[in-house]
Design a protein around this nucleic acid. Structure first.
Lengths: 344, 344
DNA sequence: CATCCGATGGTAATCGTTTGCCATTGACGA
DNA sequence: TCGTCAATGGCAAACGATTACCATCGGATG
């Protein structure tokens, strides 16, 4: 079908070695005359080097594996876009893998990607188990973690200071006078869930408020979970005037349910989310939330991976980005409607 | 680093040919004794066949290219997930490419993927230009289109009967008594935009209502565009009691702006969207919209591609799925709050 | 005992590149 | 007229697999 280097060589009346020299990096070991003959043949036959063959020979496939829990979770697409933009510009292709938080899937994808000789990996939030990460590290496989770096693994990572983000969220509510602040988090298995809960406790503790387990719920990081938590709060007649959710999805689910139950937002209940997904600014009232620079995280992770690929296996580095509390209207902090940013 | 077939051969004291025979498809041309020796060596060395080498030799890479305008557009992640799920189960890897609706990017990705010897393509909404698609077709490259199949290209596709969806949306509003229905569509360059506008006109026409250009806006398929359209309607004092938007993003943007301007939904203005993205059910009021079976579309497309890969280069087929008008509360059609489904 | 045959496993070519090393050539100085 | 040398380009061995074809061997058969 497509022309090979051999076809070009024949057409130009030279050997394949010469064609290769002309086509690949500017090796100037070929005279101007032959070079132009070869280039003419290349153009005529529309020759495109076969990247699979090149990959086999050079042991570099210009491919990276991207491992994501679930691309349909709105936290990820922006990250993936950042990664893909940088990768594309650098001539790398991205293999997409959804693990659905399933460790065995994560492992099997990893094995598959290695069989495919990918040059490196990006993990947009790994699971808790670090054993296979250590293995990667031992084998000096370039890899970058995003958003979460489990303790004990010494790998490059692009992180967000979520501790600070969560604290700011809670402090924002405290400043507005709230004392009974419910927390909707994730399943205890996920480390990020435990972390965020701890941050909530710390922020309360710093303000001298006793932690009340009756205010804590597992919303599974899904909108339904947020709604369920509100239902439980109301059913059990727990007193509360505010909600912090560990992600926007649950916050929005909670808001929807509060609406349904006739509560006014932010009048009766103030709500703060986490992530600043696109829709945070589009719900009623627009959601106050902790924004993570998702697109940037993707870009930075891929840029770091490029550095690792192009040589420097220097010591591993962690970039820690600052989250930003985006104050909108779901807490009643803004009296008048202000311009609420719609970021990507 | 990793063991090759040669290493296994040495360890087992046989030739590489024998190892290959044991490892690859169950060719039984090897005695039980040798077979177990080989398998022992394979296990001991943790041998994993190199898929790049296999790909080169077999001319099959078990890789497909997935071409998407923009993964961060919420219409796509569910489709991608469907694709990825099926691909993974079939042992295929997915290369993700964002074109940002840019034809030159689409072309360059196509060339790149061919250099990588992908086995097939999935286009989740191609641009208007069909020239490179025809080329694929001529070269008998397996490919499946999703959501949009430009006229004149004879390719497999998984489509949705959007004509009917849009008509149902408009008819729903007509049935509720609306006569001044604004339309917020997309840029005229995109074929889907023109189509959906035509469907809107047709539906109006069928009801004997004159088309009024003053009610038509280009919202660029983005929330800001929806808001801008509302602004324009209000500024120009155009009379309208309902809005149909060509996607949910714009519908939601419009709703937000209407809220901001003090209009009541659905009391003052009824709104219908298109797509049924996750958030359609989470806004206030929950958005009535035309649902496309996104995850299914992804699955079906990938399943069809598998058929094409495994032989049958039969005549190309188009699957047309039925959209579904999901009636929620943004049109006032439901008197009482009913259970509003939250689909993925 | 010579021949034939099925079963088994090895040899080597191939997929499309890259690249170290060698051969050729023409210019140039001795 | 040689020998030397830089410039140029070809040969062939990789990269890691697959597979058509061939060699060997032990037993069955006449």
């Amino acid at each position: 079908m497509t022309a090979t280097i051999r076809d070009v060589a024949e057409a130009a009346g030279v050997s394949v070695a010469t064609v290769s020299r002309v086509v690949s990096r500017s090796e100037h070991r070929v005279s101007a005359a032959t070079r132009s003959r070869v280039l003419a043949a290349v153009a005529r036959l529309r020759y495109q080097p076969n990247l699979v063959a090149q990959g086999l020979k050079n042991r570099v496939t210009h491919t990276v594996g991207l491992i994501v829990p679930d691309i349909s979770n709105p936290f990820f697409p922006a990250i993936v876009r950042g990664i893909e933009d940088v990768a594309n510009q650098a001539g790398l292709a991205v293999l997409l893998c959804n693990t659905y938080e399933d460790l065995s899937k994560e492992r099997s994808y990893l094995a598959l990607l290695r069989k495919r000789m990918v040059d490196g990996f990006i993990f947009a939030t790994v699971g808790a188990n670090t054993e296979h990460l250590r293995m990667l590290r031992r084998q000096r496989m370039p890899a970058v973690l995003i958003a979460r770096a489990p303790g004990g693994v010494d790998m490059d990572a692009v992180l967000v200071d979520n501790r600070r983000g969560e604290r700011e969220a809670v402090e924002h509510l405290l400043r507005l006078g709230h004392r009974r602040i419910a927390f909707i988090g994730g399943p205890a298995i996920l480390p990020v869930a435990g972390e965020r809960l701890a941050d909530y406790r710390d922020a309360l503790g710093a303000a001298g408020i006793r932690f009340d387990p009756a205010l804590v719920f597992d919303g599974g990081f899904r909108p339904e979970g947020g709604a369920a938590a509100v239902e439980a709060l109301l059913r059990r007649r727990v007193k509360f005037t505010a909600i912090v959710a560990a992600n926007d999805l649950m916050a929005i689910g909670a808001m929807e349910d509060l609406h349904r139950r006739g509560r006014r937002l932010p009048g009766d209940v103030a709500v703060v989310g986490f992530d600043d997904i696109t829709f945070a600014s589009l719900v009623e009232p627009p959601l106050t939330t902790v924004a993570q620079p998702k697109y940037q995280m993707g870009r930075l992770a891929m840029e770091r991976l490029l550095e690792l690929l192009n040589g420097g296996t220097s010591r591993s580095r962690r970039l820690v980005l600052e989250p930003r509390l985006v104050v909108r209207e779901s807490c009643g902090a803004t009296l008048k409607r202000t311009e609420s940013k719609r970021s990507n």
